[in-house]
């Protein structure tokens, strides 16, 4: 079922999609985009990969369990809220560093938060897609 063209195309597109996803995340604060759409993009990349090859290989490419992605994503969001708490302000108070990092722009707790969003979205989408694909395989047996 897996066609060669798809495999080859995926090889080429896969890294591009991941890059684009990162781009969406970073520009999100200033222009349309952001963690959510970025996450979907990255997830699509892996989903495509899974269709082109197999779920198992896609899981390998991901190197982490999808749940761990969700968890870490949530944790990022959670941690991004803490500095404010320690600084005596309420939860989720934004913190900005003055250091300007090339490409990324200013480092901030807000970026961490949005990265968390991205990770959760990737984790969620892939959990669903993988589970569904595996369930299908099992039912076909």
């Amino acid at each position: 079922m897996t066609s060669i063209i798809l495999v080859v195309a995926t090889r080429l597109i896969f890294p591009l999609m991941l890059m684009f996803s990162l781009f969406l995340l970073l520009r999100g604060h200033d222009a349309p985009g952001g963690g959510f759409v970025g996450g979907l993009m990255a997830a699509s990349a892996f989903a495509l990969f899974a269709f082109a090859t197999s779920v198992t290989r896609a899981r390998d490419a991901l190197r982490r369990s999808t749940f761990r992605l969700i968890g870490v994503g949530l944790l990022f969001a959670f941690i991004s809220g803490l500095p404010g708490l320690f600084a005596g302000s309420p939860f989720l108070t934004a913190m900005w560093t003055s250091a300007e990092v090339p490409v990324i722009g200013k480092l901030s707790s807000v970026l961490l938060f949005d990265t968390g969003v991205l990770l959760v979205v990737v984790g969620v989408t892939l959990t669903i897609v993988f589970a569904m694909a595996e369930a299908d395989e099992e039912e076909e047996e």
Partner: peptide, 28 residues
């Protein structure tokens, strides 16, 4: 205050970040 030009995104990740945290929890 929010250091962002995209007001919608700033609302999502900062002004009303709490909602978004809930939102990704729902997804998870």
């Amino acid at each position: 205050l929010g250091h962002g030009h995209n007001v919608v995104n700033v609302i999502l990740v900062d002004f009303r970040g709490f909602d978004t945290m809930g939102e990704i929890t729902v997804l998870g």
